[in-house]
Design a binder for these strands. Structure first.
Lengths: 152, 152
DNA sequence: CAGCATCCGTGCGGATACTG
DNA sequence: CAGTATCCGCACGGATGCTG
């Protein structure tokens, strides 16, 4: 699903850009990273965005956990989705699965180095979320109020 | 949908934790941030995870864009989803909408300071994605190969 | 040009029951 | 305990057609 940004449309009449270093970085991106046939952005964002995987990674930061423990640590997740999400994370190399041949059997999941490494950028994002959450909520109230005013 | 992590189950027999500073931060989280009735994590992750909003924010880093330009900059997005995503982002205060009363009308979208501010953590995540993408892909091949082996 | 309205297929994910 | 199997609703999102 080629979800890449086009390098630069409007060849001759480029708008004066924001000028920030950030915009600059993103512009190089548009020419480089997004040209890949299967861009890593969508790839990782699909994981981060899905309903459970991020919560599970966070839960596993406290140490290895058994299936049942994870099920309790992430409330409201069904066994079905837990299993499914665990498989995805295992497949991506984010967590490892270790089976103990006891009876009844027990299975322990733990973060791999790769799984650990994503927590760093992830925590940045969540920190942002914490800090800016109030702003977002007030923005929404504003918007909704304005929308209601327009309706009247 | 109370998507918060439980503070700490298994009171008496806590596993020896990974010991990293990161795990420590996350543990304080579990007690604090996730106790909120509507946790900001899920809130922001829902946005980041959805199919288009992140791409749109990235596209807007190069400067203000018209509806049509955005539609071209983010290939494969339909007008329907573009409109819908723009509304969500506007509602959250991430972008602002400016209508020019020309005919035919033109509308320009631009990042707000709030919208700018999320790019910093976002770029961290995507940088991670770029760096680790190869690892993930090889992990997947491994896993799939092993799965096929088990099937046989 | 910028968008809303409508129809519709697909897949995510919940609930339930069963197994080694 | 740690899953698998099956059914199913519903929201996400694509395609198309119509407006100011």
């Amino acid at each position: 699903m080629s979800t890449r940004l086009r390098p630069s449309n409007h060849p001759g009449r480029n708008r004066p850009d924001a000028g920030s270093a950030l915009a600059q970085r993103f512009r190089t991106w548009q020419a480089a990273a997004f040209d890949m046939t299967l861009c890593p952005v969508r790839d990782v964002l699909d994981r981060v965005g899905d309903k459970w995987t991020t919560l599970m990674l966070i839960a596993l930061t406290t140490g290895p956990m058994r299936f049942g423990a994870l099920n309790r640590a992430v409330p409201d997740i069904s066994k079905r989705m837990l299993t499914q999400s665990l498989r995805v994370l295992e497949r991506d190399g984010m967590i490892s699965r270790q089976v103990f041949p006891t009876k009844p059997p027990s299975v322990e999941y733990r973060l791999t180095p790769l799984g650990q490494s994503i927590l760093e950028p992830l925590i940045q994002l969540v920190t942002w979320a914490e800090v800016r959450h109030a702003d977002i909520r007030t923005a929404r109230e504003r918007f909704d109020a304005a929308a209601k005013a327009d309706a009247a």
